[in-house]
Computed example of a mutant assay.
Amino acid sequence: MLFNIFIYVKKRKISWYREEYGYSQMEVAKILSVTQQSVSSWETGRTIPKTYQMKQLAIMLGVEMEELFYDVFNISEEEKKNVL
């Protein structure tokens, strides 16, 4: 259950900021030199971007990396146990 909440929160942040700035998944993919499927995977929580991609995405969306990926950086020990 916690894993599903983690995915939902992460998805909402990436897609919310992307949509706020008016980017499509395809536009983000092109700017970051990744596939549209990669962007979709980040937004659904199946995968997370590499560190350098996180930085690029944060700059592109005008938000601090720590804000955009807060849930990735601040997962609790209890959540880690439930995810792993």
Rank of each mutant, 00 (worst) to 15 (best):
L2Y: 14
L2I: 05
F3R: 11
F3L: 09
F3P: 07
F3V: 06
F3W: 09
I5T: 13
I5Y: 15
F6H: 15
Y8V: 07
Y8A: 14
K10P: 00
K11D: 12
R12G: 09
I14M: 11
I14V: 04
W16G: 11
Y17E: 08
Y17V: 00
Y17T: 00
Y21S: 05
Y21E: 10
Y23C: 03
Q25A: 13
Q25D: 12
E27D: 13
E27R: 11
V28E: 02
A29T: 03
A29D: 10
K30L: 07
I31L: 01
L32A: 03
L32W: 09
S33D: 14
S33V: 01
V34H: 12
T35M: 05
T35P: 07
Q36R: 10
Q37H: 13
S38L: 05
S38I: 00
E43S: 02
E43F: 08
T44W: 09
G45N: 04
G45H: 06
T47S: 13
I48D: 14
K50V: 01
Q53K: 05
K55Y: 12
L57W: 04
L57D: 02
I59S: 02
I59G: 00
M60R: 00
L61M: 07
L61N: 03
L61H: 03
V63Q: 05
E64L: 10
E64Y: 14
M65L: 11
M65K: 14
E66R: 14
L68R: 02
F69W: 10
F69S: 03
D71M: 03
V72E: 14
F73R: 09
N74H: 12
E78F: 11
E78T: 04
E79L: 03
K80F: 12
K81M: 00
K81S: 02
K81Y: 11
V83P: 05
V83S: 08
V83G: 04
L84N: 11
L84P: 02
